[in-house]
Simulated assay, not measured.
Amino acid sequence: MVRTPLTPEERERGERLGRLLREARGGRSMTEIAASAGISAETLRKIETGRAPTPAFFTVAALAGVLELSMDDLAGQCVLVPL
């Protein structure tokens, strides 16, 4: 299966999601948060750095739960506003 290239907007949304998750993690270790969410630290690293700009819904939901973030707020903050 060939994956369609991401648009610049999708990449920006992924980078924004990564920043929000990294900020919410604060001083807690990446390993601790990843383990609590049931994902690998490498997966979390890729999401936080924007290298995985379209993580699975359940991955984002698990991270949001561990970081005590509202999925509605997270989605709202990742919406790109046209210039």
Rank of each mutant, 00 (worst) to 15 (best):
P8M: 06
L44G: 10
V79W: 02
M71H: 06
R45I: 11
P82Y: 02
V66T: 04
A61C: 07
L67C: 04
T54I: 11
I47H: 00
S70R: 05
I33F: 08
M71D: 10
E48L: 03
I33P: 11
R28E: 14
G18A: 05
L6R: 08
L17W: 03
A75N: 05
T43G: 14
V81E: 12
G76E: 08
F58A: 13
G50L: 03
A75D: 02
P82H: 07
T31I: 14
G38R: 09
T4P: 00
T54M: 12
F57K: 12
D72V: 04
S29L: 11
P55L: 01
G65D: 12
L44D: 12
E15P: 02
T43Y: 10
A41K: 14
T43N: 15
T43Q: 15
P8A: 13
E15W: 00
F58C: 11
R22K: 13
M1H: 04
Q77I: 04
L67V: 00
D73R: 03
G50R: 08
V66R: 02
R28F: 06
M71A: 11
P8R: 06
T31Y: 14
L83M: 07
A37H: 13
P8N: 10
F57D: 15
A35T: 14
K46V: 09
E48M: 04
R45M: 14
R22A: 13
A64R: 00
R25M: 11
L74M: 05
T31M: 14
T59K: 01
A64N: 04
R16K: 13
A62V: 03
R19N: 12
E48Y: 02
T49H: 07
A56F: 05
